[in-house]
Design a protein around this nucleic acid. Structure first.
Length: 139
DNA sequence: GCCAACGTTGGC
DNA sequence: GCCAACGTTGGC
C-alpha cells in the first residue's frame, strides 16, 4: 500500500466532480509531465491518495483510491502519456490547508511544499497519518 | 494579475 | 549535448 497526492485546479476538475463519478471512478488524464507519469506507473489498485485543490482553495479536501493501474491516456494519441483511474473514498471532515501544512514541522519535506508544481506526487506513511489527524479523520 | 520556478523545445 | 527561449503552473 502506497500513498499519493493528486492536485487539481477545482475550476477544471474538482472534488465534487470526482465524487459525482462514484465508484466508477475517472481517468486522471491530462498529465503531461514525466515525473508525474512515472509516479502513476508505480501505483497499484487499492493505493490511497489525497485530493488537493490548487490555486484559489489550496487545501486537501478528500481521499481517493486508485481503481485501475496506469493505462494510455485517452485524451491524447501520444503513446508517451498514461494515467490511472481514481475514485472518491471520503471527504476529509476538516480540509487541511497549505498554510496548515507549511506550519507543521513534520510536513516540511512534503513534495507539496518542496515542489509545488508537481501535480502527482508520493506521500510518506507518516505524512499520511499526520494529515489524516489534522483533517479530523480517525484511523 | 504578477512573477518565480520549473520543464520542454529546438537551434547550434 | 548544451543552453537560451519559451510556455505553464501555482503561490502570493
Amino acid at each position: 500500500m502506497k500513498f499519493w497526492l493528486f492536485k487539481s485546479e477545482p475550476s477544471t476538475w474538482s472534488w465534487n466532480d470526482q465524487v459525482a463519478k462514484g465508484d466508477a471512478g475517472e481517468e486522471w488524464d491530462g498529465v503531461r509531465n514525466y515525473q508525474a507519469r512515472n509516479f502513476m506507473r508505480e501505483m497499484t489498485p487499492g493505493d490511497l491518495g489525497f485530493f488537493y485543490h490548487s490555486q484559489k482553495d489550496r487545501e486537501i479536501v478528500g481521499i481517493v483510491e486508485v481503481s485501475a493501474p496506469a493505462h494510455p491516456d485517452s485524451t491524447t494519441d501520444d503513446a508517451r502519456w498514461e494515467c490511472v483511474d481514481i475514485k472518491a473514498v471520503e471527504p476529509l471532515p476538516a480540509p487541511v490547508t497549505l498554510d496548515a501544512i507549511k506550519a507543521e514541522p513534520r510536513l516540511a519535506d512534503m513534495v507539496l511544499v518542496r515542489n509545488s508544481r508537481l501535480s502527482v506526487q508520493p506521500v510518506t506513511a507518516e505524512e499520511w497519518d499526520v494529515i489524516c489527524t489534522m483533517g479530523g479523520k480517525q484511523g
